[in-house]
Simulated assay, not measured.
Amino acid sequence: MPDVYDLTRGDSPLIVSMPHCGTELPPGLEERLTPEARTLPDTDWHIPRLYDFAPGMGATVISARYSRYVVDLNRPPGNESLYPGQATTGLCPETLFDGTPLYADGRGPGEDEVGERVDTYWRPYHDALAAEIARVKDRHGFALLYDAHSIRSHVPRLFKGRLPDLNLGTAMGESCPGSLREALALVLAEISTHGHPAVVDGRFIGGYITRHYGRPGESVFAVQMELAQAAYMEETPPFAFDEARAAEFRPHLRKVLETLLGFRPEGPLGE
């Protein structure tokens, strides 16, 4: 079994998950992709580098090594749609975000191959994430899960216009207590005054990870953050990291994580 994730354990209640930052492909897959797909345009580029301060804050960080084109770790294993009626991509995508084919000559994975990918790449990541949530909860009595993502600021097929720089998802308030959602919304409102527009539960309300693991009644509180990549990098190949933009942006992300770390459940069930 390949090493499908990197893990750095911290001693705080915070876990940062990075399911879409991977760029590795298993043998034989690259030649099946279209030339555009081989550039991995839908990757959450440079997310570990952007959040390089998180381990120093005591956060546990788990990040994927393999591309979302192998299997999407933020989709349910049964491939149920997370956004019914809206354009999206599935468990083993066959199109890019813009709707163009991912595979050359229609050579997408069959049912058996999808099952193998789930067993080889999807389950180990989720087994590890679940184990870290249990470890953190056992130590602190609760766990805070921050699912870290990014996307191009303009993807017409998925959303109209330009995406705000920060897009917080709480599954419409179902994945964390209202008090935490409100505290984060206040921080995002303040960040917006510094030229980084932000929204709560807009186009991105949180994917499988946020919705599945965010269980306030069990003292596990989850949010997703989708960033517009224009805030810290170039959005066209070769998708270069922009250290100047990132240096200006990181303090705002740190403030978000600090707000999470400052949260304490009010009752035994975090309600």
Score class of each variant (00 low, 15 high):
76 P>R: 06
32 R>A: 09
159 F>G: 03
13 P>S: 12
8 T>R: 14
48 P>C: 10
102 L>D: 13
249 F>E: 01
259 T>V: 05
10 G>F: 00
202 G>D: 08
189 A>K: 12
119 D>H: 15
234 E>F: 04
133 I>P: 05
109 P>H: 09
65 R>V: 01
3 D>K: 14
166 L>Y: 00
238 P>E: 10
87 A>S: 13
260 L>P: 07
19 P>C: 01
79 N>M: 04
245 R>H: 08
264 R>V: 13
267 G>K: 07
172 M>G: 07
240 A>S: 15
254 R>D: 02
79 N>F: 06
127 D>A: 14
134 A>P: 05
214 G>E: 01
220 V>F: 12
81 S>E: 12
205 I>M: 12
139 R>K: 13
158 L>A: 15
109 P>Q: 02
149 H>W: 02
204 F>H: 15
224 Q>R: 04
267 G>V: 07
12 S>F: 07
112 D>T: 15
182 E>N: 09
167 N>S: 15
54 A>Q: 07
256 V>W: 00
72 D>P: 00
117 R>L: 00
192 S>L: 07
151 I>C: 11
9 R>S: 08
260 L>Q: 06
40 L>S: 12
100 T>K: 13
167 N>K: 03
168 L>W: 00
23 T>D: 14
95 T>F: 09
178 G>L: 04
44 D>C: 04
81 S>F: 08
50 L>M: 10
261 L>P: 10
224 Q>I: 11
175 S>C: 02
245 R>N: 08
188 L>E: 09
54 A>T: 08
162 R>A: 07
25 L>R: 05
159 F>Q: 08
187 V>Q: 10
238 P>T: 06
56 G>Q: 09
85 G>K: 08
197 P>H: 08
54 A>I: 01
197 P>R: 14
123 R>A: 05
231 A>G: 08
177 P>W: 06
108 G>T: 05
